[in-house]
Design a protein around this nucleic acid. Structure first.
Lengths: 334, 334
DNA sequence: TAGTGTTATGGAACCGCTTCCATAGGATAT
DNA sequence: ATATCCTATGGAAGCGGTTCCATAACACTA
């Protein structure tokens, strides 16, 4: 039923080797034969079986992308970058969405096999030591995005610098009652929020602004939760004049809270976010932009290079951050 | 280097057939042998080569999802549904993002081969006749989402009904100057916006409200473009009192425009969208909800069933729509 | 003319699995 | 005891490619 390379060979009156050579653009085929074979291929509407090819070659021509379920725009944006970079390569993209640690472990284990995929892109999912070991042992090229480990290539931004940049911006505007809001900081293998917090603390210190414990808000990620956290703080006795949220989604939650409480932004409250997701532009949110799309592109190119060269050096690729000044930060009025 | 099934067989002192049987949970293996083999597999850290398996079985255990690049939340939401439904199946998800018709044609052609994937999920990308023919000829099971064709299974909502629902809601509130905004309607194979428009027109007619040509706005999709279109209309001599946008993204653009022009929503202008994307809830946008996530789930289950049963009947699955009343629609005040 | 290369080609062997067929051995029936 | 059936098992063949090796055909050199 399905037409194979042998059918083509018979029909074109050549050997299977020759057909294969034509398929793979080997120079060792005379022009005459090449044309003949190509004609036959077209006539029979032949398409090579990719799995046979993969088995024979020991190469899958597939790259796995593992990331948390696409619940936050930043994941999507990174994925888009990966996709963009993959589109004009020969590789297909196999997507694995993770919704809990057990699933992460399952897929990480499954993908720690050379025969599964040619490469691994792991986005916003810091692997634990055991998982790292498995990756290394398997020899599958892997690149981490938005997570780091000294033994695996990774693409990250300097989050401490980012935290500083945001905080210093607020300080320069004249704020000294600056709150910090993020998801939980004590997650063992994901340091970006924590690094931003470190940057925040350092900037306060550098400017001789005393740190206040009650200005540190952490909670489950998400816009709604950020709203609730911010509401509590803003209705307390000592409301801040500025809030630095460690993600735009959370910053937008803060804006929601301000709106709900009839607090004018930026006149009565400055808000700065982090990520520069798509929505931020429309919300006119001042934020720290980290190149999400580019992180995907960069990581993918890095991975493809690693696959091609078979080199196994683990290195870190730092992506630049920058301050995007929009309309949610201003000098405090009073 | 890599350990194969023969290594396991030799080590466990059984035949390769037996090992294969153990791997595939065949009942025709004695308990004693099964344990022995399982132990050996664990000892050798053996993992079967999926490509060899695929070649031998003539089955890829992969499903391709083809959709436009993830530039709009509705695509992402549908993809999430697919993912969710696929996670506890045996199938992996291969992602193809399309950014232009040439690419669509390229990937559609590539995927019109049994040996490439076991099934095809095509989201918001209506295939043309030639492409449909290729799909049918290849025999690859396919399901369309948010697009329809009589010869291929598809999962859609009744967009005419949706257009009616939205328009009737506005009419019931007392509006009669109702504008319609969408992307271009003359796209040959994608009828959802057009169907919504038809529903809009019918509702007007049913209510004896004369249709006004200048209340029909179409343009390139996207929030910013919607803003511009709405701005023009709202600053004209005869501004409408309500706008029905054929997508939430565009409805939010309309809200942007209103804000920019200092027009109060809903007091001076009612806005209703379509899709009920995540952001709509936060924006308090009244909208027609179509089950995006569910469309992915439903289509995937349909596909898996088709793959399993090998039946080739093309049928339509209609998903329910409903009106979500929030805070952007009200009776006109004057 | 024989010797040496070079180029184009055919086809066997191999990639690592599944499955079918043959068979051994044990249980049951007669 | 022999015939019959059933179960568990070994291993060859096959899935559809690629690649290596052998060889034929044809220069070119001395």
């Amino acid at each position: 039923m399905t037409v194979t390379i042998r059918d083509v060979a018979r029909e074109a009156q050549v050997g299977v080797g020759t057909v294969s050579r034509v398929l793979n653009d080997s120079p060792a085929v005379s022009n005459h034969t090449r044309q003949k074979v190509k004609r036959t291929i077209a006539n029979l509407d032949y398409a090579p079986n990719p799995n046979a090819r993969r088995l024979s070659l020991g190469k899958t021509w597939q790259v796995a992308v593992v990331l948390p379920n696409l619940t936050f725009p930043s994941y999507v944006e990174r994925l888009r970058g990966v996709q963009h970079a993959l589109v004009d390569s020969e590789y297909d993209l196999v997507l694995y969405g993770i919704s809990n640690p057990a699933q992460q472990d399952k897929y990480f284990a499954k993908l720690s096999t050379k025969s599964q995929v040619d490469g691994l892109l792991i986005i916003s999912l810091p692997p634990n030591e055991q998982q790292v070991d498995r990756f290394l042992e398997s020899g599958v090229p892997a690149v981490l995005v938005d997570a780091s480990h000294e033994k695996i290539c990774h693409v990250v931004v300097d989050d401490i610098a980012g935290g500083k940049l945001a905080t210093q911006h607020l300080i320069k505007l004249g704020h000294c009652k600056i709150a910090f809001l993020s998801d939980y900081l004590d997650t063992p293998f994901q340091h970006s929020a924590e690094d931003r917090y470190i940057g925040y603390r350092q900037s306060l210190e550098d400017a001789d602004i005393p740190y206040q414990e009650n200005y540190k808000l952490t909670g489950e990620r998400g816009r709604r939760n950020a709203l609730l956290l911010a509401k509590t703080l803003l209705t307390s006795d000592t409301p801040p004049t500025a809030i630095f949220a460690a993600s735009d989604t959370q910053a937008i939650g803060v804006l929601d809270a301000a709106k709900g409480l009839n607090i004018q932004v930026p006149d009565e409250l400055s808000v700065i976010g982090y990520d520069d997701i798509r929505d931020s532009e429309y919300m006119n949110l001042t934020t720290i932009s980290q190149p999400l799309f580019d992180s995907g592109v960069t990581a993918t190119n890095l991975l493809l290079k690693t696959i091609a060269s078979k080199q196994k050096e683990a290195f870190r690729h730092l992506l630049p951050i920058k301050l995007i000044e929009r309309k949610t930060t201003a000098s405090p009025k009073h």
